[in-house]
């Protein structure tokens, strides 16, 4: 299917254009989500896309699925209710960095721990964009935000390590630049019967870029390209991984899935 056919089939055309700023990485990441769903041939009626609050959270509104735009940080808790209540549904959650790891951090680790069959994708732009550029848990140490006018003194979350440590059974990192790779990571994440966590490195030229003198969107995209290296490459040539962000499939270790385990309990009582 070519790009316009995909748009036709999966986007709510009347809701476009989207609200994202020129140069924002979110649109590219969202296209990866859609292409992965298309590749897997999922029935649109059985796909639920859930989001929280922030720039990323506007994504579901543009998509022609069952879509749920919830409260800040709580997307995974809503999604858990949906998946547990109707395990037949494919539940995909799109969150922002602050959304998923600050206000929603507790929900994130517990969704990971349960290994419930949800695919969580974080559009990480290292900033609170919707509210105008405050530092988030993924803003690099020393960088600036409107609430870090003298430089961010916080340490930065490695979201993938966090998800893996908390029990996610599939963990991957991709970027808005490496679109084809991102498609595949999401595709595999959806296929994993369990909790999948995929960090999508995005970019925010409007707030993060401007505040930190990162140049325009093109320059920021180039930075994504240059600063990231795939795990497989580093495995062969470790020296190429120095001072780089590792992308690709980081962890894949299936375990019993939550709703299936619950079904075993239900089945015990079926005569």
């Amino acid at each position: 299917m070519n790009a316009s056919e995909i748009t036709q089939k999966y986007y709510r055309a009347d809701k476009l254009p989207h609200i994202w700023c020129p140069g924002c990485g979110h649109g590219t990441l969202l296209n990866s989500v859609v292409r992965a769903i298309d590749k897997l041939g999922l029935n649109k009626d059985e796909v639920v896309v859930v989001s929280g609050i922030g720039c990323s959270s506007r994504a579901p509104g543009y998509l022609d699925f069952n879509t749920l735009h919830t409260t800040h940080g709580r997307a995974l808790a809503f999604a858990t209710g949906i998946k547990h209540a109707n395990p037949k549904l494919h539940v995909i959650v799109i969150m922002g960095d602050g959304d998923s790891s600050a206000i929603g951090g507790n929900h994130l680790i517990h969704a990971c721990r349960r290994n419930i069959d949800i695919t969580a994708i974080v559009f990480n732009n290292n900033i609170y964009g919707m509210t105008g550029g405050q530092y988030s848990p993924t803003t690099p140490h020393g960088d600036f935000g409107t609430t870090a006018p003298y430089g961010n003194i916080d340490s930065t979350f490695d979201l993938c390590n966090l998800a893996q440590g908390a029990g996610a059974t599939y963990v991957a990192r991709g970027t808005a630049y490496h679109a084809n790779a991102m498609d595949k990571l999401i595709e595999k994440g959806i296929q994993n019967k369990g909790f999948s966590f995929i960090e999508g490195l995005s970019l925010c030229p409007t707030y993060y870029g401007r505040k930190n003198k990162k140049g325009d969107a093109v320059k920021m995209f180039s930075f994504l390209k240059d600063s990231c290296v795939d795990k497989k490459v580093v495995e062969k040539k470790p020296e190429l991984g120095e001072n780089k962000v590792i992308i690709g499939e980081l962890y894949n270790n299936p375990k019993p899935e939550y709703t299936e385990s619950y079904q075993v309990i239900i089945d015990k009582f079926q005569k």
């Binding site: 808790a77 858990t80 209710g81 547990h84 209540a85």
Partner: peptide, 13 residues
């Protein structure tokens, strides 16, 4: 917080 969210999700199905 999550409990309230989850029952909303449950009800939506």
């Amino acid at each position: 917080i999550a409990s309230m969210a989850a029952i909303i999700g449950g009800s939506l199905t």
